[in-house]
Design a protein around this nucleic acid. Sequence first.
DNA 1: ACATTATTTTGACAAATATCAAATTTGACA
DNA 2: TGTCAAATTTGATATTTGTCAAAATAATGT
Lengths: 255, 255
Amino acid sequence: MPTQTPPLADDESNLISHKKNSIQRKNHQPQVACERCGLSCFLELFNGLPEELTHIFLSRQQPVPKGKSLFCEGQPFHGVYAVKKGGIKTYAMDSKGEERILGFYIPGELLGLEAITANYYLSTAVVLEASHVCWLPFNQLDLLGDYFNVFQEHLVQILTMQLTQQQHQFVLSARQSAEERLAAFLINLSERYAKHGLPDQLFWLPMLRSDIANFLGISMETVSRTFNRFQEKKLLNITGKQVQILDRPGLIAFA
Amino acid sequence: MPTQTPPLADDESNLISHKKNSIQRKNHQPQVACERCGLSCFLELFNGLPEELTHIFLSRQQPVPKGKSLFCEGQPFHGVYAVKKGGIKTYAMDSKGEERILGFYIPGELLGLEAITANYYLSTAVVLEASHVCWLPFNQLDLLGDYFNVFQEHLVQILTMQLTQQQHQFVLSARQSAEERLAAFLINLSERYAKHGLPDQLFWLPMLRSDIANFLGISMETVSRTFNRFQEKKLLNITGKQVQILDRPGLIAFA
DNA sequence: ACATTATTTTGACAAATATCAAATTTGACA
DNA sequence: TGTCAAATTTGATATTTGTCAAAATAATGT
C-alpha cells in the first residue's frame, strides 16, 4: 500500500527524507481529499474509477515548508505532485551551472509528469512559500488492475493539455519587450487561477521578482520598473506580492 | 481503411484538399515505410504491434511542396505527421494577429500531438521547403483492437518526452542575450539532427532568418549580425542556410 | 540566361534594457 | 518588538538591440 505522506528531497543534500508514515487512519472522511479542498488536481486522473481505488492513491494534503524541494534533478521518479495551496517553482541547471526557472505551479496544478518515461526527474521543484501538496505514487499503479487503461487515457489527455499550455507559455515569453513579457505573464497566471475557481483579479505572486526575471529572461530591475509603469498607467496595483488587475483589457493589449 | 495519402490544408483557404486515394497497392515491400527511409518516426508508436496492423497505419511518405500547410489552427484533428525530409514550422496567431512561431520540425520528428485531446489543431503547420511527410490517421485507432493499450502506453512515453524537450527548449530560448539564444538554438538543432542519425556538424537551416528571429524573439537583423560575429570568432561557418559548426564547445559555452 | 522578386546583409541612429551601486522596504527570527 | 538579513526599488550610465533605409545576394519563373 502506498505511503500516505509525500517524500521530500532536501534542498541541502540529495537525500530523500521519508517522513515516517504517521497514522494509518481507517476512518476516511466521506469525501476524497481532492473534493475536500475543492481543487480538482488529481481528480481528472481518477475520473470514472471506483472510489476505493481513488482512496488508495489520493493522499491527504501535506504541509510543506518554504524552501523544501519535492524532488531534485536526476533523482529517481517517485511520483507526481499536485499543489493544493501555496506555490512551487521548477528549475534546471543550464550549461553555465546557473539556475534556470522552467515554470511556476499554483494551486490546482500538477508537476513532475515529464519524469514518467525518463523515470528520473528532469528538474528540481522548490516550494516558494509554505504550501500544501498531494502526492501520487506512480510505482504502484498496478493496483489499478483493469482500470489501468482508463487511467492511462486520462493521462494522455492531461499530457497533451500540458504540451499545449507549454507551447502557449512559450509564445508568451519569447516576445521582444519586457512590457509584453510581463503583461503576458500576469495574464497567464490570472487565467490559471481562474481555471481552478480562484480569484483572478486579486491574486498573489508566490515567487520572487528575481524568479520572474529569471523565468522571463529579463533583469530583476526591469521587472520592478515595468510593474511600476503598469501601476502608473492604472492597469494594476502591486503591493509586494499582491496583484490587483484593474484594467484587464488594457493589460491584454500589452501582451 | 485509412487513406494512404496525408490530407493537406491549403495555406490560402481553409479547405481540406484530400488527394484522391491513388492506387491500392497490395504488394507491400517487405519493409514498412518507416524502416525504408531509415528514420524511426512512428516506429516507436507501433513497437511490439503485429506488422499487419502497422501496415494499415503507416502510409508511404508523401512529397509536399514548399508553402503548403499540413493543418491549420482550429481545423478538426485528423492525425499526426512525421517529417521524413525537409522542414516544417508551426505557428499560432498572437493577440495582435501576428504570426508567432512555436517550433520547427526536422526529419525524424512528430507534430500535431497536442491536438489529440483538444480534437482540433492549436497551430498551423507550414512546409518550409519541399518536404516528405508521413501521416498517421488518429480517427481509426479502434482498428488496433486489444493492441490499443500498448499503443497508448507508447503514446504516453512520446508525450512525456516531448514535454521534456519543450521544457529544455524553453530554457534555451528565454535567455537574455541574442548571442546566447542563437548559440542555444543552433546547438539544439544540431543535437536533434544527431538524434536521428543525421550529420550534426554540417547541417541545413530549413527556415528563414526572419523565422528564427520570430521564434527567438529577436530581430532578423540581429540574427544576421550575430551569425557573422560567430563566424569571426571561428565558431562556425554559415553560407546561406548551410551551417558548419567548427568549435562546438565554444558555441556551447555561449549558450 | 535573364529579369524580377524575395531574402539577407550592412550601416546609422534611437530606444530599450542590463549593469552597478545605493537606498528603501519587507520579512524572519530571537 | 527590535534587529538583522533578504528582497525590492530607485538612480545613473553603458551596452545591447530594434528600427529604418539601402545595398547586396540569392531564389524564382519565364
